[in-house]
Structure formats: structure tokens, C-alpha cells
């Protein structure tokens, strides 16, 4: 990056303005190569801007297609509203969406956090003993393959209405990715490092905190990205069944039963936004903590 201006200044040396002619000390071939070099910064700048806006392009094109086609085919607003209507609906009553988003976000966050803590404890035990791992893995698979929507009503009957069943459901769906990735991560320590630690008689606790847990971080971040989406599913689904009267899930359910299509879509948009921001935060945190890991280099 720092080389670019140097090359440009060589190219535009005093007394040699513009494309170098035969009078220059450079041969035509060399001049052409240098000129090509001098051009790269602009190309590179363009490439960098393109890379930066690429993630937004897909979303923008998708929304534009939605907007145009609903107008083109004249689809009625209460069947499928246009993105512009949905966005202005949110703008008309932001307080409503913020209030409900806070409820859902809090449930999702708590469930996510409970799952994380429990899964780390479970993963530590499983990484410690193959027997425990063999005993617990089928249970984790059972939790994973059973559709949450099937056992959600059962959990509500068992724990009654309120936030309790919502937290249980949310942490249950987030638990498995953290557990499985945690076990893999805690076992991913360089065996040479483990032997090195043993050569100075390091305690199990030291090995866990100084080697195993940091080695597991890349795996736990991967799990966190999966768990964010699952936490929102758990929280929204919980609100459907748990007889609560706030949250974006409740708003979705209410809007559906009262044919409030705009509010329904507004809640969906806000949920999508909340999830995306959470993913962005996790990615940022990952970049900060895992600068040493090969996944963060390109």
C-alpha cells in the first residue's frame, strides 16, 4: 500500500510528464509496466469500496425486486405490503417496535447466556472424559433433532405462562451448538503445548484457563453465530405459546389474528434487524479477540 505513491512519483518524474516517450530513460516495455503499476491504486480503491458495499447489495436488490414486483403485479397491501410501506409503518410508531424489541432481545439474550454457561460446563466435563461424552452426546442429538415447535406447548404447560418457559425454550435451542463446538474446541489444543505444560507439571486448572479455553474460542464464536438465530427463534416461539402480552413474537401473533399485515411485517423486519446487529457485534468481537487465529487472516 505504501509503495503505490513511490511508483507513481517514479512514473511522473520531473521532465517526464504524461506517458513516457522515447526521450525517457525507460524502454517502452518498462514504461508500460510502470504505467500499469500506477493504475493499480485506483483499481484497488475501487475493489476495496466494492468489497465494503458487497454485503449490502444482495439485500438492496432483494428489497428493490420486492418493491417493484408488488407494484407491477398490483398486489394488495394487506396480502403482501411493499417494503416502503413496511418501513414507513415502523417509522410511524417506533416506540411500539422498540418496546417490544427490548422484551424479545432480553429474553433471547438471557436464553443465549444461560445456554452458553451451561454448555461450557457440560463441554468441560465431556472434554475431560470420553465416557461422559459418550453418555451425553445422544441427549444433545435428541434435543437438536426434536422440533422445538413440538415441545414448546408442553414446556408451557409444565412451567405455566410467563418468562420461565420462554427462557427454557431459548436456552434449550442454543445449548447444543455451544456444547458440540465447545467439546471440539476444548480438545483442539496443540498436543505439543499440552506436553509442554505437563513438562513443568502445570495443573489441570491452568491448562484449562491458559490453553484449552482460548483454543476453544474460534469454535465458540462459530457456535455463537448459529445460536443468535436460534435464540431469536426460541424467544419468538416462546412468546407465541407462553401467554405473554409483549415482545415481537407476541406482536407477530397478535397482528396475524387481527389481520394487521403492516404490523406483522414491521415486527419481522425489526427481528431481522436485531439478529443482524447481533451477528455484526459478534463478528466485531471475534475480530478483536481472534486476531491471532488463521480464520481472521486472508
Amino acid at each position: 500500500m505504501r509503495i503505490e505513491p513511490v511508483i507513481a512519483s517514479v512514473h511522473q518524474a520531473p521532465g517526464d510528464p504524461g506517458p513516457p516517450g522515447p526521450a525517457g530513460s525507460l524502454s517502452a516495455d518498462e514504461a508500460a509496466i510502470l504505467a500499469e503499476f500506477a493504475k493499480t491504486p485506483r483499481k484497488e480503491r475501487f475493489a476495496r469500496v466494492a468489497r465494503a458495499i458487497a454485503p449490502a447489495i444482495g439485500v438492496v436488490v432483494f428489497l428493490a425486486f420486492w418493491q417493484v414486483s408488488t407494484q407491477l403485479f398490483d398486489i394488495q397491501k394487506f396480502v403482501l405490503p411493499r417494503p416502503s410501506d413496511i418501513l414507513s409503518g415502523i417509522k410511524d410508531d417506533p416506540g411500539f417496535y422498540i418496546r417490544n424489541a427490548r422484551v424479545t432481545l432480553w429474553e433471547a439474550f438471557l436464553g443465549f447466556a444461560i445456554a452458553f454457561v451451561l454448555a461450557i460446563i457440560g463441554a468441560t466435563l465431556m472434554a475431560h472424559s470420553r465416557f461422559i461424552e459418550r453418555a451425553v452426546t445422544p441427549l444433545a442429538v435428541l434435543i437438536q433433532v426434536t422440533p422445538i415447535i413440538a415441545y414448546a406447548p408442553a414446556v408451557v404447560i409444565w412451567l405455566k405462562f410467563g418468562i420461565k418457559p420462554i427462557l427454557v425454550l431459548t436456552s434449550l435451542v442454543c445449548f447444543v451448538p455451544f456444547l458440540i463446538n465447545g467439546v471440539t474446541g476444548l480438545r483442539s489444543v496443540d498436543p505439543n503445548l499440552l506436553e509442554l505444560a505437563r513438562s513443568v507439571n502445570a495443573s489441570k486448572r491452568e491448562v484449562f484457563w491458559k490453553l484449552r479455553l482460548p483454543s476453544a474460542l474460534p469454535h465458540l464464536f462459530a457456535a455463537a453465530r448459529i445460536a443468535v438465530g436460534l435464540a431469536l427463534i426460541g424467544a419468538v416461539l416462546g412468546e407465541f405459546f407462553a401467554g405473554v402480552s409483549s415482545g415481537l413474537g407476541y406482536s407477530v401473533k397478535y397482528a396475524q389474528s387481527h389481520f394487521l399485515t403492516l404490523q406483522l411485517w414491521g415486527s419481522i423486519y425489526v427481528l431481522a434487524l436485531v439478529g443482524s446487529v447481533a451477528i455484526l457485534l459478534i463478528n466485531g468481537l471475534e475480530k478483536l479477540t481472534l486476531h491471532w487465529h488463521s480464520s481472521q487472516r486472508h
Binding site: D190, N192, E195, L196
Partner: peptide
């Protein structure tokens, strides 16, 4: 050890 085995972080 044979590999440098430095702590990557």
C-alpha cells in the same frame, strides 16, 4: 519439542 509449539494468541 520438535514443533516450536508457541501459544498462538
Amino acid at each position: 519439542p520438535q514443533a516450536p509449539a508457541l501459544v498462538p494468541w
